[in-house]
């Protein structure tokens, strides 16, 4: 997801969104990974996963962590040159993506159905396009 956000950060920002990534681990891990994979994305660290739980995210079950979709996601990542390294954080924690407006109201919520599940960028751009009409 991080590389996809980096690839599309220009479109997302033109749509009015500031893009933030919350990652597990310490700032030194964020500096290493975000700095190389997503230099245009603001990365914030959570060394406890407390924020994940607060946002309704939870650890995946076996079928959510290892299935065809996850394997295919790994193949796609490897084809782009992304290879795995030591795991930083809770490998069972599932990802999620949200859009929040300037009043702090959730306008879009995506909870992954498996570990490699991410929202289409088109869905994020569409949700961003609705922000103006929602505030009118």
């Amino acid at each position: 997801m991080l590389s996809s956000l980096e690839s599309h950060h220009g479109e997302l920002e033109r749509a009015g969104l500031t893009v933030l990534a919350v990652a597990q681990g310490e700032p030194k891990h964020n500096e290493r990974y975000c700095g190389s994979l997503a230099p245009n994305i603001t990365c914030l660290s959570d060394s406890t996963t407390d924020s994940y739980h607060t946002w309704g995210l939870q650890q995946g079950k076996l079928g959510e962590l290892l299935n065809v979709g996850v394997i295919m996601g790994g193949v796609r990542a490897a084809s782009k040159g992304h290879v795995g390294g030591p795991v930083i954080g809770d490998a069972r924690m599932m990802p999620g993506t949200f859009i929040v407006d300037g009043a702090g109201i959730v306008r879009y919520a995506f909870y992954a159905t498996h570990a490699a599940d991410h929202p289409p960028i088109a869905d994020l751009l569409h949700a961003a396009s609705l922000l103006g009409s929602a505030s009118n």
Binding site: L2, L12, L20, Q24, A91, P95, F98, L124
Partner: peptide, 25 residues
């Protein structure tokens, strides 16, 4: 990334934000 404390509201009070909670590194 430099160790400074931050809250998510600091960002959304300036306008809409996309927040992606990553799985792990």
């Amino acid at each position: 990334i430099t160790g400074q404390p931050a809250t998510l509201s600091e960002y959304w009070k300036n306008g809409p934000v996309l927040i992606s909670f990553l799985r792990h590194f």
